[in-house]
Design a protein around this nucleic acid. Structure first.
Length: 488
RNA sequence: CGGGGCGUAGCGUAGCCCGGUAUCGCGCCUGCUUUGGGAGCAGGAGGUCGCCGGUUCAAAUCCGGCCGCCCCGACCA
């Protein structure tokens, strides 16, 4: 038994995931059941996700704010569907300062209630709208079964909350954010997603409509990677969020809320990881390039470390990407063979490794190894920053392309019988595009029989085979073409 | 909460049936030799055997109770 090797994805995908997260030091189990510690390697990825998204939110007119962790229990009860959805998994504080509280406080599972209660104070006129707020926060949901990053009792996320004058404006916001998430996931995470509408049974508790980004993991299961909700006037009515319109009438505001979480880190692992560990797309990699100097003698060690320092200097001071400087680390550890370092950095997922030894130095070159393909090539030290930058950009694109090809290879777009569908779901699984008559009972039956659910009613651009005409289960006329899959 | 499994060094484990103060591997520390794909040798440190109680001259081992964790279900970003 060689415990240096990870369990392979083919042997046990779930075990592979856990080992990869733990051994790449993204996270660790905490003393509290169902909670996790996010370690620097994992938090560094989250920070880069935050930075990219935060810039996008700001660019579209949103501003950050912060609302309290504690919510009066009564707030949760003001919207009927909302309480039904979240009360069962609420953590409730009953004591403070050694005394029983007059009203219990719920640790936020999401912040609609407290935020819209505040919006109600701030809005009198249509001129006060829209309000475009985002907050970065932790939330708590008392889940029965947990998994690192994918489902923990406490997780980090951002939640956007907006209020608008009209339904259409709120709908446009909801859709705009959905597109923003998609752009980030595809261009930043190199993780292709399908955007679409959630069915009634899968929509957010209290929403009019929920849209989501659905990604396919390497076990062909779907991961809901982000959601954007048009809340209609449900919360505005519950919290008396009203404004006087231009014509003088009193109207309830139209709200949206939307969020992505540290779950995306899990999605990143399950989208790009291989049997050697993590593969981080360059844009999200805290370290894009690791330099491994190689030496034999003490004399060589001094020379190579100096040369490595110069290479790092050349890379990090290069301004070809503007303010976005290349992120470079030198692995100068002694007493560790180069091969051992290679395996370690591959496990951690650093996109590009530059090996620099006496032979390379003599040639004025270095050996570059791509993490995504594990291909090696000799690169001239002349113009290295340009070469490296271009290579990283190529890798970013290649990783997205490879992930998209994998998804399509495991999608079923042609008509399929329900019997065949059951076989697929019992076997390798897939994203199955099929007709649905729109009946929630059919959805429930399929879930009961196969564990697959409707991931979304995809936007038209994803339905490349043309809309389905009949329901896969009943044979009745199809109301929608939907994507069926097992999900995390 | 229902069904199954497991708690022994930082991690992974043997020992338990058949009682005698704990095995092996990885990791860690020191020294020397190494360093272009997971180094070798030598020496060393590290343990309330999940917790409480019982039986016994003696408990990791047998008995009772409790706690925790993992997997499968119900619930879910």
């Amino acid at each position: 038994m060689n415990d240096k090797k990870l369990t392979t994805r083919a042997a046990d995908f779930s075990a592979w995931y856990n080992e990869t997260v733990l051994r790449a030091e993204l996270a660790d189990y905490s003393p509290v059941r169902g909670c996790m510690v996010i370690r620097p390697n994992g938090y560094g990825i989250w920070e880069r996700m935050q930075r990219a998204l935060d810039d996008m939110f700001k660019a579209t007119g949103h501003r950050n704010a912060y609302f309290p962790l504690f919510i009066p229990e009564s707030f949760l009860h003001k919207e009927a569907q909302h309480v039904e959805g979240f009360a069962p998994e609420a953590a409730v504080v009953t004591h403070g300062g050694g005394k029983l509280l007059e009203e219990p406080l719920v640790v936020r599972p999401t912040s609609e209630t407290i935020i819209y209660s505040m919006f109600a104070k701030w809005v009198q006129s249509y001129r006060d709208l829209p309000i475009l707020i985002n907050q970065w926060a932790n939330v708590v949901r008392w889940e029965m079964r947990t998994r690192l990053f994918l489902r923990t009792l406490e997780f980090l996320w951002q939640e956007g909350h907006t209020a608008h004058v009209t339904h259409d404006e709120a709908e446009a916001e909801t859709r705009m954010i959905l597109g923003l998430y998609r752009t980030f996931m595809e261009e930043g995470m190199a993780m292709p997603v399908i955007t679409g509408l959630k069915s009634e049974s899968e929509k957010f508790a209290g929403a009019l409509r929920t849209y989501s980004c659905e990604a396919m993991m390497q076990d062909n299961k779907a991961l809901q990677a982000g959601t954007s909700h048009n809340l209609g006037q449900n919360f505005a009515k519950a919290f008396d969020l009203k404004f006087q319109s231009e014509s003088g009438s009193m109207e309830y505001a139209w709200n949206t809320s939307w969020g992505v979480s540290t779950r995306m880190v899990g999605g990143l692992v399950m989208t790009h990881g291989d049997d050697n560990g993590l593969r981080i797309p360059p844009k999200l990699a805290p370290t894009e390039v690791v330099i491994v100097p190689i030496w034999k003698s003490e004399d060589e060690r001094a020379r190579l470390l100096e040369a490595a320092g110069q290479v790092k200097q050349a890379l990090t001071t290069w301004g070809g990407r503007g303010d976005d400087r290349l992120r470079v680390h030198i692995d100068a550890r002694e007493g560790m063979k180069p091969g051992a370092k290679y395996y370690e950095w591959e496990l951690v997922g650093v996109p590009l490794r530059l090996e620099l030894g006496p032979r390379d130095l003599a040639n004025g070159s270095c050996m570059a190894a791509r993490r995504d393909t594990r291909e090696k090539a000799s690169l001239s030290l002349d113009g290295l920053p340009e070469t490296v930058s271009a290579l990283l950009a190529t890798m970013q694109g290649d990783m997205l392309r490879a992930a998209r090809e994998r998804r399509e290879a495991n999608s079923i777009r042609e008509a399929i019988s329900y019997d065949r569908f059951k076989e697929v779901m019992e076997g390798d699984g897939a994203f199955v595009y099929a007709g649905w008559n729109g009946d929630p009972a059919v959805e429930a039956k399929v879930k009961e029989e196969t564990k697959a659910t409707i991931r979304c009613i995809p936007e038209p651009e994803f339905v490349t085979q043309g809309a389905a005409t009949t329901c896969m289960v009943t044979g009745e006329p199809a109301k929608h073409t939907v994507i069926w899959a097992k999900a995390y």
